[in-house]
């Protein structure tokens, strides 16, 4: 009763009811959307890392296929090619691979036949290139021809282009999915703002007639939905972070699979989620509320 009410200690109550029954549903939906957005971000980062790793590996290596000419054994031709390539600027190491490696490459087609060693199987020379100034295939080819060697240089450029294209596709697809999810979250918040305004039309009317301007009323809804979205974003981000950590732990140093390596630092990608969710909610709720309040007049 009155004895327990001390005006001196009074603090203004929120002008919108503190909790609404439908808030739980909104938080759940936005949480799911934020979770999916965070997982998408983690997936894109991991895919990008994988692509960089593969293209980096391929760019730092080249393979030369050496065919022996008449009067020269395949092993001798391979040794000579390795020696020639080692002298080219930008080649860190050139190593003639054992003949077993060459046989391993053709065995799937020819089978495990006994006289395989009698076949004129080309030898392979593996080259490690200086990543800062790698020679191109033309330079390597020129050096080999200068020594009269019959060889084909594969600098993996075809593969690198494919991997880069695939990585770009993954990046753009990830960004598109992320934007779609953000748009869905914005739409859900706009829908909730409309419902909130419709349900609290009495509050809007009283505030309006008491002299509150449109921006003042819109800010009430904006703050309400920004807080809800921030909470939802936090729950979604934490959940996605836990899933990301589980993927990292499940796959050891390479993440769940070497194809999609998740690093601990990737988990930082989920940190901005609550803020982003709140910003999206702020913008959408403010615009929606302002539009609806003006329509009410």
């Amino acid at each position: 009763m009155s004895e327990s009410f001390d005006p001196a200690r009074w603090r203004p109550a929120p002008l919108l009811p503190a909790t609404e029954a439908r808030d739980g549903g909104l938080v759940f939906v936005v949480t799911v959307l934020c979770f999916l957005a965070c997982l998408t971000a983690l997936g894109v980062i991991a895919a990008d890392r994988a692509a960089r790793g593969w293209s980096g590996q391929l760019a730092g290596e080249a393979t030369v296929i050496v065919r022996a000419k008449a009067g020269e054994t395949p092993d001798a031709a391979a040794a000579r090619a390795a020696e020639t390539l080692a002298g080219v600027t930008g080649v860190v190491e050139a190593r003639a691979l054992e003949k077993e490696k060459a046989y391993d490459l053709v065995r799937p087609w020819l089978g495990d036949i006994a006289d395989l060693e009698d076949l004129p199987v080309p030898r392979l020379v593996a080259i490690t290139l200086d990543p800062r100034a790698p020679p191109n295939a033309e330079m390597l080819d020129k050096a080999l021809k200068a020594q009269g060697l019959d060889a084909v240089v594969d600098d993996h450029s075809v593969w690198i282009k494919d991997i880069r294209r695939a990585a770009d596709t993954v990046r753009w697809a990830g960004a598109a999915i992320f934007l779609l999810i953000a748009a869905a979250a914005g739409y859900v918040i706009a829908f909730a703002t409309r419902a909130g305004l419709a349900a609290r039309r009495d509050v809007v009317e009283v505030l309006h007639l008491s002299g509150a301007d449109d921006g003042y009323i819109a800010r009430l809804f904006q703050i309400r939905f920004a807080q809800l979205a921030a909470v939802a974003g936090l729950i979604g981000a934490v959940t996605a972070g836990i899933v990301g950590a589980a993927l990292r732990l499940a796959g050891g140093g390479q993440g769940l699979t070497p194809a999609l390596p998740v690093a601990w630092i990737d988990l930082l990608a989920v940190v901005p989620c609550p803020l982003l969710a709140a910003v999206v909610a702020t913008v959408v709720a403010h615009r929606t509320a302002l539009h609806l309040i003006r329509a009410l007049q």
Binding site: P12, A13, L15, P17, V203, V206, L207, S210, G211, Y216
Partner: peptide, 17 residues
């Protein structure tokens, strides 16, 4: 406003100001 106390209801125009 049914979710505000009598004090909050009475103070509303001042808050808005």
């Amino acid at each position: 406003l049914d979710h505000l106390s009598a004090f909050d209801n009475a103070a509303l125009p001042l808050r808005i100001r």
